[in-house]
Design a protein around this nucleic acid. Structure first.
Lengths: 189, 189
DNA sequence: GTAATTTGCCTAAAAGCTTTAGGCAAATGC
DNA sequence: GCATTTGCCTAAAGCTTTTAGGCAAATTAC
């Protein structure tokens, strides 16, 4: 029998697809081996263990998100940049729920520091450059932006806003309006 | 050997404690059996399966959170109510990280409808009664509040804001200030 | 108080996931 | 063509989930 051509990258990508199909929690070394029609033990030459596989998927997702975020920010500023960037998160989570869940995986500090997570923080600050904030308010605002984006997207993903009026799309638009208004008028302490 | 006095409620409570100690994902029927010094199969008389156990823990957490939320809202309105309620979420997540994670478990619609989750939504609306919002803005605002609370707390829990200035406590206070200002001045469409 | 019934925890067993160790064959390098 | 590396394999041990069936303790009924 020939070789399947496994390597860490292919496994990671297939793992990401699997995550989107069956949920990140169900991503397992066994399931991945089945997908490649290969024995389970064979994967352990390419991936240290189950946790390693998950981490790689998380890093892939963070990378893809950062990539999309950067593309969205190019040539935009202020409110435009805000909504475009926010939509990157929301769209990505809806297109790739498993990957988005992976991106939430808690990474150990060194891994996190070397990940695309830092790019995300920088992009948020870039957005805020279109508003009139100075430190430490800029940091507070970055944290708030992150909270709203992640909070909304994850509540939406867990079904929180479905089956009730008004439409989630409408709320999302109005929440972004509100954020924009807030950033233009950030309250003094 | 005598009986251990197992029942669904004791198992659920012990499961919640276990979740706080080792993380919700690590809560397993086996681990729970060990904790009661009992054979694994014995738990299956009290709990349908692993998923059932998790769901029970989630419902317990939602109940406890609603309980605390109601206590926090009693006698408060406006900004006071907002911050007191928000702190309930944050404090609960920090005291009981495993339970808080459990509360995020995706429940099937009927279970969710019968859970304390609906109380949470009602309490958010009660808070907004201290501001001047009419439908559909009230719903948009409810969704935004939920997003900020959950988003901030979960990013904080995953270590997002640690090891960087300014202190997370300060950001949290300023984010609540900002939310209050925003609600008092909710932008027209 | 004893007998009947229910309840609670047990043993046994099958099936799936994780991980390590060691082996053979295909691919690659000289 | 031969040696080495690489890739996937078999084997095996350990853990979790879940079901089935059994015995003894607790409860209830006389």
């Amino acid at each position: 029998m020939g070789r399947a051509g496994l390597n860490a990258e292919r496994l990671t990508r297939a793992g990401a697809e699997l995550a989107d199909e069956v949920g990140f929690d169900e991503v397992t070394v066994s399931a991945l081996a089945r997908r490649f029609d290969v024995k389970v033990a064979s994967l352990y030459s390419h991936v240290r263990n189950s946790q390693d596989l998950r981490t790689r998927i998380a890093l892939l997702a963070l990378d893809e998100l950062a990539e999309r975020g950067a593309a969205a920010l190019a040539g935009r500023a202020g409110r435009d940049a805000l909504t475009a960037f926010a939509n990157v998160y929301r769209d990505y989570a809806r297109e790739h729920p498993g990957r988005y869940a992976a991106a939430q995986l808690r990474l150990d500090p060194e891994t996190a520091a070397a990940s695309a997570g830092v790019k995300h923080a920088r992009m948020m600050r870039a957005i805020l450059r279109g508003y009139d904030l100075t430190e430490p308010d800029e940091t507070h605002a970055v944290r708030m932006l992150g909270s709203v984006f992640h909070g909304y997207v994850s509540l939406e993903a867990s079904g929180g806003f479905s089956h009730s009026a008004p439409d989630s799309d409408e709320s999302w638009a109005r929440v972004l309006d509100a954020l924009d208004a807030l950033l233009r008028n950030w309250p003094a302490p």
